[in-house]
Design a protein around this nucleic acid. Structure first.
Lengths: 152, 152
DNA sequence: TATTGTTATACTCTATAACTATA
DNA sequence: TATAGTTATAGAGTATAACAATA
């Protein structure tokens, strides 16, 4: 019985065992989208947490560090460094809270607001390109199912 | 003009700006599923990359380190440490490849195979519980859309 | 007592470059 | 010359505990 060429090759690797798990598929999809996202974000010299923090401050003027941290599921201690960074860049300012002398009221500067708008637009365009393989319906369904995971 | 109580409270924080992005929804959903996954995995004293590496070795006996690394989108250098760890635990062995003296043929030990089976079952049960809010159809659709993201 | 912002610390995961032995 | 495995290192992100000022 003659051996074929394939007998001299190692087996191919299949990840079907892991594909049954939602967690695995989530991670793999996130890696792809995030890596693409980062390449666009690097044009603004920003990292992911800076992007989302700036966006929430622009849209929620006067919020405290803890409130932003909670909304993003980030630790308060990490938020301190993020605000430090955004403040150094002149995108955000810490003002005194009129409600509580322990906390700050965060506000975007004009530069921060402008950067944020341009950033959101560019990232959206970039994500649209990456997801060209999905129809509008599929994309809406996907996001809606992802949100449902967060609510369960 | 009398002030209401609400005038003495800071604004609530809303993340709607970010919810339009697939990447943000992916990350938030992944955080929830992964954190739940870790709490179950800790019973086996395993971390996420050890779990997925062991599963692929069990299902793809004889595969090389690089082949497993590629299938998981992990660096070869990281795979070295993962295999070291799995080998120390007696779950996996590095055997000489019959095809290439540079590479190893990875094989699970009986203990590794047993651990993997029990691990996969437990994690699946746990994930089912977490996703009780989604119908079978919704779950199938979600996974299929996530895979489609990876193929675009 | 509890909470806000802060500091320090440590751990996981990832990314890169360079080396060796084989191909 | 290219590839498999290895080593070392650095960085990002995250998690925890403790402290001072304020509630």
């Amino acid at each position: 019985m003659a051996k074929t060429m394939h007998d001299k090759e190692p087996p191919q690797v299949d990840d079907a065992v892991l594909r049954q798990f939602l967690g695995y598929n989530l991670k793999r999809a996130y890696l792809i989208v995030h890596s693409d996202f980062l390449s666009k974000l690097s044009e603004f010299d920003l990292r992911t947490p800076l992007f989302s923090t700036l966006a929430l401050i622009v849209e929620n003027p006067g919020a405290s560090q803890t409130a932003i941290a909670n909304a993003l599921a980030v630790e308060r201690s990490a938020m301190v460094l993020l605000i430090d960074d955004l403040e150094k860049r002149g995108l955000v300012v810490r003002e005194k809270s009129p409600f509580d002398r322990r906390s700050y009221a965060l506000h975007a500067t004009p530069k921060g607001t402008k950067t944020c708008r341009s950033m959101l637009k560019d990232v959206q365009t970039h994500e649209d390109g990456l997801l060209a393989g999905l129809s509008d319906d599929e994309r809406t369904t996907l996001i809606s199912l992802l949100r449902k995971v967060g609510q369960s």
